[in-house]
């Protein structure tokens, strides 16, 4: 089994926030904790791009390096997880993370009052028995041990968000990018959706006139 990764296709993401909702629902996350968010660049401007961001399960994770209680560990599948029993809520991981993945249930409170850090687990729980009540309460549902992929990716309507074995999802993305060609009106599915004639083809009015 290779490394588990997320891959978000900015050409497909429609900013529906389905992944965010799926995650919150799956793990019954408290108010204020968002393990996943959708970030939009140039919001409102034609050509805006959105991507879904959460813990990216870094190969060399900075959160693991800065944690004073060493509560992080990495599974055989390359998923970065943490032990909430050892977390002291210092927030170092939040400052170290380039994606803003670590979340605190009590928000930006004083040290000691933030609560234990919560982050995306790639739907693979934490250091408790697989599928147990304790695991669900602390880390959320363990879909990986059920042979399923993370809820966000499986719920994505446009399949912009891919999750799973890095080589497999990279192949899917590469295949997709080759087939769709360019972005914008040359993208796969554009003519089906908007009916724009291809370059050099006769206009619809001309076709009707010919009949």
């Amino acid at each position: 089994m290779a490394r588990m990764k997320f891959l978000c296709d900015a050409e497909r993401c429609i900013e529906c926030n389905g992944c965010v909702t799926a995650c919150k629902n799956e793990h019954e996350l408290p108010w204020g904790v968002n393990r996943r968010r959708v970030v939009t660049i140039n919001d409102g401007v034609p050509g805006e791009k959105s991507i879904s961001v959460s813990c990216m399960h870094c190969s060399d994770a900075p959160c693991m390096a800065v944690c004073p209680t060493d509560c992080f560990y990495k599974t055989e599948e390359g998923v970065v997880l943490h032990n909430k029993d050892a977390c002291i809520g210092c927030g170092y991981c939040f400052f170290a993370c380039p994606f803003g993945a670590p979340q605190f249930p009590n928000g930006p409170a004083a040290f000691g009052a933030r609560g234990k850090m919560d982050k995306c687990t790639f739907c693979s729980g934490g250091p408790e028995e697989n599928g147990s009540k304790e695991e669900f309460e602390k880390y959320g549902r363990n879909r990986i041990s059920e042979g399923k992929l993370p809820a966000c990716a499986e719920m994505c309507a446009t399949k912009a968000l891919l999750a799973g074995d890095a080589p497999v999802i990279s192949d899917i993305f590469r295949d997709r990018a080759l087939r769709r060609g360019k972005a914008g009106d040359a993208a796969w599915g554009w003519t089906t959706a908007y009916g724009k004639p291809e370059q050099g083809a006769p206009a619809p009015a001309a076709k009707e006139g010919a009949k």
Binding site: E129, G131, G147, G164
Partner: peptide
């Protein structure tokens, strides 16, 4: 890491230690 050890995904539960079945299920989902 000094904390508790975690069980691997195929241990216990639905797959009961059958790693090959777990990998096949995940590959199909992929």
């Amino acid at each position: 890491y000094q904390g508790k050890s975690d069980t691997r995904p195929w241990e216990g539960g639905k797959f009961a230690g059958d790693k090959a079945a777990w990998e096949a299920a995940l590959a199909s989902r992929n």
